[in-house]
Computed example of a mutant assay.
Amino acid sequence: MDRKSIEDLVQEKNDSYKPLANIKMDGEDKVLINNHTYELIDNHNGCFNIDDFSINYNPIFSRYSYIVGDYGYGVLRLKGFSDDGTNTPLQNQFLAIKDYLNEYANMGADYFVMHNLEVKSKPSSSFNKKRPRRNNRNNKGGFIKEKVTKTKPEIEKREHVTVTQSKGHGKRHFTIKQRND
Rank of each mutant, 00 (worst) to 15 (best):
residue 114 M to Q: 02
residue 7 E to S: 13
residue 11 Q to C: 05
residue 38 Y to Q: 03
residue 112 F to Q: 00
residue 115 H to W: 00
residue 74 G to K: 02
residue 47 C to E: 03
residue 157 K to F: 13
residue 93 Q to M: 08
residue 135 N to C: 06
residue 2 D to H: 04
residue 16 S to N: 15
residue 179 R to H: 14
residue 101 L to P: 01
residue 75 V to W: 02
residue 26 D to N: 12
residue 50 I to C: 04
residue 78 L to D: 02
residue 116 N to R: 01
residue 43 N to H: 02
residue 14 N to Y: 10
residue 121 S to Y: 09
residue 106 N to G: 14
residue 156 E to V: 13
residue 120 K to D: 05
residue 180 N to K: 13
residue 159 E to T: 06
residue 100 Y to Q: 04
residue 177 K to P: 04
residue 42 D to V: 12
residue 102 N to P: 03
residue 27 G to P: 09
residue 165 Q to P: 01
residue 104 Y to M: 08
residue 69 G to W: 03
residue 152 K to L: 11
residue 86 T to W: 05
residue 57 Y to V: 06
residue 139 N to W: 09
residue 137 R to N: 12
residue 77 R to D: 14
residue 125 S to P: 00
residue 21 A to R: 08
residue 95 L to G: 12
residue 150 K to Y: 07
residue 59 P to V: 07
residue 35 N to G: 00
residue 80 G to D: 01
residue 157 K to D: 07
residue 3 R to C: 04
residue 169 H to T: 08
residue 151 T to L: 13
residue 142 G to C: 07
residue 82 S to A: 08
residue 39 E to I: 04
residue 145 K to Q: 10
residue 180 N to Y: 06
residue 111 Y to Q: 00
residue 37 T to G: 02
residue 176 I to W: 09
residue 161 V to L: 10
residue 68 V to S: 03
residue 163 V to I: 14
residue 46 G to S: 03
residue 14 N to H: 10
residue 127 F to S: 10
residue 29 D to C: 07
residue 31 V to L: 15
residue 132 P to I: 00
residue 31 V to N: 03
residue 35 N to K: 08
residue 75 V to M: 13
residue 96 A to E: 12
residue 40 L to V: 02
residue 72 G to N: 11
residue 168 G to M: 12
residue 125 S to V: 11
residue 163 V to H: 05
residue 168 G to V: 08
residue 88 T to S: 07
residue 146 E to S: 07
residue 74 G to P: 11
residue 122 K to S: 12
residue 40 L to G: 04
residue 174 F to D: 05
residue 10 V to F: 11
residue 134 R to F: 14
residue 54 S to N: 14
residue 19 P to S: 03
residue 155 I to H: 03
residue 181 D to S: 09
residue 83 D to H: 06
residue 181 D to K: 10
residue 60 I to A: 09
residue 117 L to V: 00
residue 33 I to V: 12
residue 65 S to W: 00
residue 43 N to A: 00
residue 160 H to D: 13
residue 48 F to C: 00
residue 99 D to I: 06
residue 150 K to N: 10
residue 15 D to N: 09
residue 71 Y to K: 07
residue 18 K to Q: 09
residue 52 D to Q: 15
residue 157 K to H: 13
residue 120 K to G: 03
residue 176 I to M: 09
residue 159 E to I: 05
residue 91 Q to M: 11
residue 143 F to H: 10
residue 67 I to W: 03
residue 131 R to M: 03
residue 2 D to S: 05
residue 93 Q to G: 00
residue 12 E to S: 12
residue 134 R to V: 15
residue 51 D to C: 09
residue 77 R to M: 08
residue 140 K to S: 05
residue 15 D to G: 09
residue 28 E to C: 06
residue 99 D to N: 15
residue 108 G to L: 10
residue 118 E to I: 00
residue 89 P to F: 06
residue 177 K to T: 11
residue 157 K to N: 12
residue 154 E to W: 04
residue 156 E to S: 06
residue 83 D to R: 13
residue 1 M to Y: 05
residue 38 Y to R: 05
residue 86 T to I: 12
residue 125 S to C: 09
residue 23 I to H: 03
residue 176 I to A: 07
residue 25 M to T: 11
residue 89 P to A: 06
residue 176 I to R: 13
residue 90 L to E: 13
residue 98 K to I: 13
residue 156 E to G: 01
residue 103 E to Q: 15
residue 145 K to L: 08
residue 160 H to T: 04
residue 173 H to L: 08
residue 126 S to F: 08
residue 73 Y to T: 02
residue 158 R to A: 11
